[in-house]
Write a protein that binds this DNA or RNA. Structure first.
Lengths: 143, 143
DNA sequence: GCAAGAGATCGACGGATGTCGAAGCAAAGG
DNA sequence: CCTTTGCTTCGACATCCGTCGATCTCTTGC
C-alpha cells in the first residue's frame, strides 16, 4: 500500500495552503465551491514577488535543502528520469554510498514531499510528487 | 566596483555551459558568432530527463543548498523582490539574526552564484543573478 | 517454520554549518 | 586625524548532518 509522506504532520498544512488558487482577486475562500476554472496553482509565489515570511521560508527551505545534497540530487534524478515514472530502490542504489545511506536520503526526500514510496512485494518503489516539484519551479520563475 | 562571485574558481566552467542560448531567439549572444539556429539549450536539463552525473550533482546541489536555509531564503527573496532589483544590506538586515550572520549568508548566496554584490559609497548592494536562478528553475521543469 | 533477500532503523562518529561577539576595514564627515 | 557608520572577517562554540556497520522488519519461497 501507499506509504506516502513519512511524517503525516510534516507539511500537510502548508500544502493545503499552497493549493489555494491565487489569481487576480484572491477572494479565494479556502473551502467549498468548485474552484474557478484556472489556477489552483502556484502556492508559493515567485521569490521575486514579495519577501517570504519566516514561516514560509522555513517550509520552503526544507524542500530546497532536500535537493541540496549531491547524493540526494542524484537519487532524485534517477527516480525522476526512470522509465515508468518510478524506480525500485535496487534500481538506483548505485550512487557510491552504502545501502543504509541511500535509504536515509530517500527518507529525507520523502519527508520533504518530493518523493512518495510504495511497497510492492519484496520491493519498494519511489516516484516523484509532481505538484511539489512544480511549486518549487514556480518560485524560481523569472517573474 | 563590482565584486561579483566571491570565488572565481567556484563555478565558472559550468556556468559557461549554462550560458548557452536555448530559445528560438535568445539571440542575445554575449560573444561572436551566430551559433546554429536553435537549442544549445538548458545547461542543466530537467531533472526528469536523465540521471545526473556525480559532478553535475555536486555543482547543482551547491545551488539548491544555498536556498536550503530559511534565513538565506528570506534574504534572497528580500533582494529579489526589492524595488530596483537590488537591495542594500541595511535594507534587508532585519531577519532575526545578527548582522555578521546576515553577512555570512549573503556570502554563501554569492558563492553559489545566486547573488552579486557591488559597493557604492558606504553601502553594499546585492542583486540576483537571473540566469542562474532561471537555470535552477529549468531543472524543476515538469518535463 | 525457516532461510534468504530487500529495505528500514539504530547508534556512533567526524566533519560541516549556523550563530554570535569582537575585531578589522573602508568610506564619509567633521 | 579621528569618529562614525556600514559591512566583512575572525574565532569559538553548539548543533546538525552524512556516513557507516550492525541490527531489525517484512516478504517470499522452500
Amino acid at each position: 500500500m501507499t506509504v506516502g509522506v513519512a511524517d503525516p504532520g510534516a507539511w500537510p498544512a502548508w500544502f493545503d495552503m499552497c493549493q489555494h488558487r491565487q489569481m487576480s482577486n484572491v477572494n479565494a475562500l479556502p473551502l467549498l465551491e468548485p474552484e474557478a476554472a484556472e489556477a489552483v496553482v502556484p502556492c508559493c509565489p515567485p521569490l521575486t514577488e514579495r519577501p517570504l515570511s519566516a514561516e514560509e521560508a522555513e517550509r520552503t527551505a526544507r524542500m530546497f535543502k532536500a535537493l541540496g545534497d549531491p547524493v540526494r540530487l542524484r537519487l532524485f534524478s534517477l527516480v525522476a528520469s526512470h522509465a515508468g515514472g518510478e524506480a525500485c530502490v535496487c534500481d538506483i542504489s548505485d550512487v557510491g554510498v552504502s545501502q543504509p545511506t541511500v535509504s536515509h536520503h530517500l527518507k529525507k526526500l520523502k519527508e520533504a514531499g518530493l518523493l512518495t514510496s510504495e511497497r510492492r512485494g519484496t520491493w519498494v518503489y519511489y516516484r516523484v510528487e509532481p505538484s511539489v516539484v512544480a511549486a518549487m519551479g514556480q518560485m524560481l520563475t523569472a517573474r
